[in-house]
Design a protein around this nucleic acid. Structure first.
Lengths: 190, 190
DNA sequence: GCCAACATGTAATGAGTTACATGATTAG
DNA sequence: CTAATCATGTAACTCATTACATGTTGGC
């Protein structure tokens, strides 16, 4: 038997539908707005998955017609879907398998001019500085919403993960640039 | 034209072959030993890719027979391969697209008992504590080798990325557990 | 009139994992 | 003798991305 790796998209969808019924478009938007710092989906995966979940009776499709608006396909989680989600939620998470092109280039940096690697590090640093700004604005937004205390806390905790991460990466970039400069300076005067 | 996302495995292989010719088995081992904290490959992807690179003349396959040893297929990077690698190396890196099942479960933690989420956080913390131990032993190993100063530095920098990351994740886990406990305590006495 | 946002999907392709398949050599 | 390590691969499959395809609604 071929054991497929678990389809996480399924649970991302079911989890979001736990709050309220949504269309594929709504789900995509919610992920981009709220979860983008640790999750992403694209339509080419999302729409076929919704159709599959509907077929499996984990969600129920309903066509919603509203005035001055295109017909939307709104998906509601079923009892079966809720059970499936509740079964997944307490299961231990898989540890993230990390693959970083930056670190590959850094590791192979021995084959390039040091300034090339320093350039990557500055690029990465800037990327995380921008992220930190985004995190701050999302944090303010979380506080403004009127979700429950509990909902806000878990959202905040997930967000803070990104903040801790970006901060650590900025420190690492600075530290690494310093180390490379020290090496090249030593080379120059030897 | 369908633009395929860049095949990074290709460059991981070419980069490793820059140091010396190796077999598929050697490459897998080197990745597991040295790069596992930011890169991974499996045979099912690696062997077909080596065959492809050979067909594209980026590497040259040679059968090496040694006494008391099975015949090995050793791959050597060609001039064309070196050029291809040199073209990739200075190109700006793609920012890592991050997908974390842990954060998905944390975000949806609002639907579970707080102790479930705290369990995940403790599990993640332990994972990173173990990683930190591994990093320390690799760091000692790096210092013991007689690679060039430059080679060691870039290896160390890549390794330190993991250290910075794991440290930040441990802090985040502790912080998050504290926040969740504070919420549940407040609930209990209200 | 035009652009952004709303709205839904399919086709083609490539990336990556797991299971299957086989066998030699070496250290305990 | 037996387990770990050496050694190479294929088949089946799922996951995920990108490009293609189409059309509406609302604000400036």
């Amino acid at each position: 038997m071929l054991m497929a790796p678990e389809n996480k998209t399924k649970y991302a969808i079911l989890g979001l539908l736990m709050t309220k019924p949504m269309s594929g478009y709504d789900i995509k938007k919610k992920i981009d707005d709220k979860l983008s710092f640790f999750w992403h989906e694209n339509y080419g995966h999302l729409y076929p998955m919704l159709a599959k979940l509907d077929k499996e009776k984990l969600v129920k499709k309903e066509i919603v017609s509203e005035e001055r608006r295109l017909d939307r396909k709104v998906y509601k989680i079923t009892d079966k879907g809720k059970k499936e989600f509740a079964k997944w939620l307490p299961r231990p998470h898989e540890f993230a398998k990390f693959r970083s092109e930056l670190l590959l280039k850094v590791f192979f940096g021995v084959n390039a001019e040091p300034e090339i690697t320093i350039g990557f590090l500055n690029r990465e640093k800037e990327f995380h500085e921008n992220l930190l700004e985004t995190y701050d604005s999302i944090e303010k937004e979380i506080n403004k919403t009127n979700y429950s205390k509990k909902y806000k806390l878990f959202w905040l905790i997930a967000l803070l993960n990104g903040k801790f991460y970006s901060n650590s990466q900025i420190l690492w970039c600075n530290d690494s640039i310093k180390k490379i400069r020290k090496l090249t300076d030593a080379d120059r005067f030897s």
